[in-house]
Design a protein around this nucleic acid. Structure first.
Length: 879
DNA sequence: TCGGCTATCT
């Protein structure tokens, strides 16, 4: 029954001798050579499917003598099956064997095979046989069982046995520790290390590599340093693997200096050490240093491997060093690394990040083997250049070529749609994802949330967001930022509060939520968030610093904003733009100009947005000539084509200073079609300068372009009212009524003790309504006594003067100011925010209140800030 | 060791 059907297979001879005695050696290699050899050979020789000829395990070379093996015992036969990887027969034989005949070695042998084949089921079966045979689980057998369970992925059961057997094998301890490290349970790994020390088991180089990795992952810098000393004390200082792990640990912890010092003192550097320096520097944003190490390697003639080139190319990409990137490209070609897909992929990405799309395309086209990474990188390259359509068509081309997109591809392509602001294309991709049953993954869901938010569809964005089972920081940030960006600041703040219960906000969260505080003028909330940032070290982040300056500007604390601005060490274009706009909003045109010039002096070139800021600042301070000069310098010096926003600023500027016909001509000569805001700016000027005739002409343009915007009808109505053309006011009201339009209601709010109270015009529902009313009446009387006359024209009602006064008294900004006086301690600044522009009568009254109550009033309207102090306003009439 | 998603300004 046991016959040998073929001649002796040669592969058996190459079997590793260590295999047979089942010694667990310390440095166990997961896929031993014999196994690979076996697999390769098995293609050329067929073995008897049933039973194999066996021999005493150790005498492999005497296979020929064993053609008749009837006398072989069960143990040897099982081991022989194991040796050739035939688990099925080995298991069968094991099940049939008498328990008294089986040796520990045999169990070990079969458990080893189970581990190699990762067959948990068979392993468990062997375990149950061992138990039912009454074999005590200890020593070598225990270790083997642990090894089997851990190898098959059942760490829990492995650990249970590990704890039972009280072993002193370093290998097994190392294995347990590294398994815990693999699943990210670094604490358990460290716990085992401590236990091991207590038992007096000396670690080896593997132990230290693993422990360093865990310490680094947990950010335990001091422990890493202690370990550093300990390693040298124990004499592991000459082990490259240990020292390289130490280098990696220092880099992981951000201890760049310690890593550099260690490397400097290192006499025995191998290529891994060098590569660690390069990749560690890159990880810590020291790409320049990384490239220096790379160059040193080349100079010293150290062998450069793929990792060296890949990491160095990443460094080139990070700092945009195209020339060195090209040189490394050349080096890689000579060394024939261009066959390595990873080399080409990195290269492709490097060219793109250095702004050389052509280079990317060339690399991509020359590649013999493209992978999904190559395609994704190419797609990202197009997105980087703003070529969204190209990116999207490349995505579908890749699809047609049968390359399956992964989550990187999908996030990239969804991002492309987001940048393209194209809801339709985004939906297509979303549908593609749904149709292809690509399970929702966190990054893709985040990207989809972002895409819908960027396309302005917050309902869809929220729907995706709410369906994410376990949200990460990015999910929350995306949603909060989406609300901020889409003018839903209350939703942003609400979600931020919700987030705090589940996830720790990071610096990006701050940058996402601060604009919401700014737009609500929610100073208290903004301050709280600022404090949170200070406590967590986020406020030194440039994005956060910029967002803070902007928030304080919009909450009316210009001085604080300035202070923070000047404390930013590395101001970027956005820092300057925020500050320039801030000066502008608060009526400090000359300061804005000084800042703009200073920005250019320090070498930061303005972009179109900073030009909007400076033009806006000029118009709000009535600086006509300066504004004209900036407008001219846009094209002449900076090569920036003025857009609608810039023209709007210029029309605004001309109109405010009373150059209405010049503004009209300016609009007529515009090379692009003026929109409603352009004509609206002129209409506003007509009101300031009481030009009814021109206003009527301009208004028709506005109504044609934006018939649904009630603000413009109200503006014209005001112009008529101020000219006391009550008939026209009435006609206009009818026109609004006929079109079913409703006037955008004016409301103002004031924050007291972190709580915002909102007032609407004529509102009487507030618990303090009576007190507010009587305070306003008293102030009105006092105003008249001191020679102020109410600006009755702003009442927009054709009624007698008393009625008009009553109507004016109920304006929301007055109610909010009065509420502030009644509820804030004496001398405290009153900060009121209004959704529309401040009314002229309210403006007058605010001046008076600031004088008579000796209070500073800071009123933010939809257009700018008004600082009232001692009866004067900072806007000096330019509003 | 390569590629992705979140942030500041009119």
């Amino acid at each position: 029954m046991m016959t040998m059907t073929k001649s002796i297979p040669s592969f058996v001879l190459s079997t590793s001798p260590t295999y047979h005695n089942h010694k667990i050696n310390e440095n166990y290699v997961k896929t031993p050579n014999y196994f690979i050899l076996f697999r390769q050979s098995s293609r050329t020789c067929t073995l008897s499917s049933n039973l194999l000829p066996c021999t005493k395990i150790c005498s492999t070379s005497l296979f020929a003598e064993t053609s008749t093996l009837v006398d072989m015992d069960e143990n040897a036969r099982i081991c022989k099956f194991c040796e050739v990887g035939d688990l099925k027969n080995a298991m069968e034989l094991l099940s049939r064997s008498e328990k008294s005949e089986l040796e520990i070695e045999t169990y070990c042998s079969i458990l080893q095979l189970c581990a190699e084949l990762k067959s948990l089921q068979d392993g468990k079966w062997v375990h149950s046989i061992i138990s039912s045979n009454g074999i005590e689980v200890e020593g070598v057998l225990g270790a083997k069982l642990v090894f089997m369970y851990v190898s098959c992925g059942d760490l829990r059961e492995g650990r249970r046995i590990f704890d039972q057997i009280l072993n002193d094998k370093v290998f097994l301890w190392n294995m347990m520790m590294s398994e815990y490290a693999k699943i990210g349970n670094y604490r358990e790994s460290l716990y085992l290390y401590k236990k091991m020390q207590k038992l007096g088991i000396q670690g080896n180089s593997y132990t230290f590599s693993c422990i360093l990795k865990c310490l680094a992952a947990l950010g335990k810098v001091e422990d890493c340093k202690r370990m550093h000393g300990y390693i040298y004390k124990l004499g592991f200082g000459s082990y490259n693997t240990v020292i390289n792990s130490l280098l990696a640990a220092y880099f992981k912890c951000g201890e760049v200096e310690s890593a550099y010092q260690l490397f400097d003192e290192l006499s025995n550097r191998d290529v891994i050490s060098w590569n660690s320096m390069i990749s560690g520097s890159v990880q810590n944003n020291f790409s320049e240093n990384a490239l220096e190490y790379c160059i040193q390697m080349l100079i010293l003639g150290v062998d450069v491997d793929l990792a060296t080139l890949v990491n160095s190319l990443v460094a080139c990409a990070n700092i945009g060093n195209l020339s060195l990137g090209r040189a490394l490209h050349g080096y890689g070609l000579k060394a024939r690394f261009n066959r390595e897909t990873m080399f080409s992929n990195t290269l492709l990405d490097m060219y793109s990040k250095c702004g050389n799309l052509n280079g990317s395309s060339q690399v991509f086209e020359k590649m013999d083997h493209t992978t999904v990474v190559s395609w994704t990188s190419m797609i990202a390259a197009y997105v980087r250049e703003g070529l969204y359509d190209e990116a999207i068509s490349l995505f579908y081309e890749m699809e047609r070529k049968g390359v399956k997109p992964d989550i990187y591809t999908l996030t990239s392509i969804v991002h492309a749609c987001a940048c393209d602001n194209s809801l339709d294309k985004g939906r297509d991709v979303h549908n593609y994802i749904k149709k292809n049953n690509i399970g929702p993954s966190l990054p893709v869901s985040n990207a989809l949330t972002d895409m819908y938010a960027k396309c302005g569809n917050m309902e869809e964005a929220h729907s995706i967001f709410s369906q994410i089972p376990v949200k990460d920081t990015v999910s929350w940030n995306t949603m909060i930022g989406g609300y901020s960006r889409n003018c839903l600041p209350n939703e942003a703040l609400k979600l931020f509060a919700e987030m705090q219960k589940e996830k720790k906000p990071d610096s990006i969260t701050m940058a996402c939520v601060l604009p919401a505080c700014g737009s609500l003028a929610a100073l208290e909330r903004g301050r709280e968030i600022h404090g949170y940032g200070l406590r967590n070290g986020y406020s030194s982040d440039l994005h956060v610093a910029n967002a803070l300056v902007d928030m304080y500007v919009k909450c009316g604390l210009l001085v604080l904003a300035m202070l923070l601005f000047y404390m930013i060490p590395n101001k970027d274009l956005i820092s300057w733009t925020v500050m320039i706009a801030g000066y502008g909003m608060h009526g400090f045109g000359n300061e804005a100009i000084a800042a703009f010039n200073e920005m250019r002096r320090v070498g930061i070139e303005p972009d179109e947005i900073s030009f909007i800021s400076i033009l806006y600042a000029c118009s709000h301070s009535g600086l006509l000539n300066e504004g004209k000069k900036f407008f001219d310098s846009m094209t002449r010096e900076c090569n920036i084509e003025p857009k609608l926003e810039h023209y709007a600023c210029m029309v605004d500027l001309l109109s405010r200073v009373g150059k209405l016909s010049e503004a009209y001509r300016f609009i007529e000569r515009m090379p692009i079609k003026p929109d409603a805001t352009i004509w609206g700016a002129l209409l506003c000027g007509c009101r300031i300068h009481h030009d009814v005739k021109l206003a009527e002409k301009v208004a028709e343009h506005v109504f044609e372009l934006e018939p649904e915007n009630t603000g413009y009808y109200v503006l014209l109505a005001n112009i008529y009212a101020e000219a006391e053309k009550w008939e026209e006011v009435k006609k206009l009201r009818e026109r609004i009524g006929k079109q079913g339009l409703k006037k955008n209601p004016g409301y103002s709010w004031i924050e007291i003790k972190g709580k915002a109270t909102i007032f609407v015009a004529g509102g009487t529902s507030h618990p303090q309504a009576k007190r507010i009313d009587s305070l306003l009446k008293k102030l009105r009387v006092k105003m008249k006594d001191e020679g102020y006359s109410p600006k009755l024209r702003y009442a927009l009602i054709n009624a007698d003067d008393v009625e008009k006064e009553v109507a004016l008294c109920g304006h929301s900004e007055k109610l909010a100011m009065a509420f502030g006086i009644l509820n804030l301690p004496a001398g405290r600044t009153i900060r009121v925010t209004k959704n529309l522009r401040v009314c002229g009568d309210c403006h007058e009254m605010a001046k008076f209140i600031s004088k008579t109550t000796k209070r500073e009033i800071i009123l933010r309207d939809s257009n700018r800030f008004h600082h009232f102090k001692d009866g004067l306003c900072s806007c000096r009439g330019f509003w």
